[in-house]
Amino acid sequence: MTPDDDLPPTDAAAALRLIEDQRSQTARRLEPDPRVLYWPWGVAWLVGFGLFFLRFAPDDRVLVRLPGWLPLTVLFVLLLAAAAIQAVAGAKAYGQVTGDSATRGRWYGCAWALGSVSVYAGLGRISEHLPHDLAALLWSATAVGLTGALHMAGGAIWLDRDLFRLGVWISVINVVGTFAGPGWHSLVVSVAGGGGILVAGLLAHLRRRRAR
């Protein structure tokens, strides 16, 4: 044992400073950087749905002559990349902590996975009987709706204001885009949805930096 660090803090102010520094440092290192959590999703939506709008624009127009398979492929690749980045960042931050918050995170992850499968199973059965533009709208409106709802639920679970507000925003723009119709929905989700996620990540980052 080193005898030195058994000494009491030099005075009350030093003790309080030590407490506050240690607590904020621990909290910071046990939470992933919000930019890493939000921004990859924002980019995926911005680019993925953006390509959808350019290739499958309103009234069956084609704004940019891209191959038909490209937008969906790019969207899926970017979404998978965002999920992988989030998983790595999460494991790095929470990997060595077990208990209630780990359970919370695991169950929330289950809600995403199982919820998506159960919703998309039904869509798969229906969408083959729909014209292409309506099928695309049904898929993206449902996916975005589920995302909005789960973000709000996440905000409620962790009392995270940024996450909850983002869920509200995504739900609202989803309604707007759906009523605007096929093609327009992609544009709204790309710009307002993807942009909204990028802004939410920035706000969460700034809030955290101020709290230090």
């Binding site: 003790a15 030590l18 607590r23 046990l30």
Partner: peptide
């Protein structure tokens, strides 16, 4: 608690959630 090293240990542990445990190496 009123010893620098243990105060740091306790302050760090207090930043964990109520039902959470942390591994020794972390």
């Amino acid at each position: 608690i009123h010893a620098q090293a243990r105060l740091r240990v306790v302050a760090s542990l207090s930043a964990l959630g109520d039902g959470d445990r942390i591994t020794f190496p972390r």
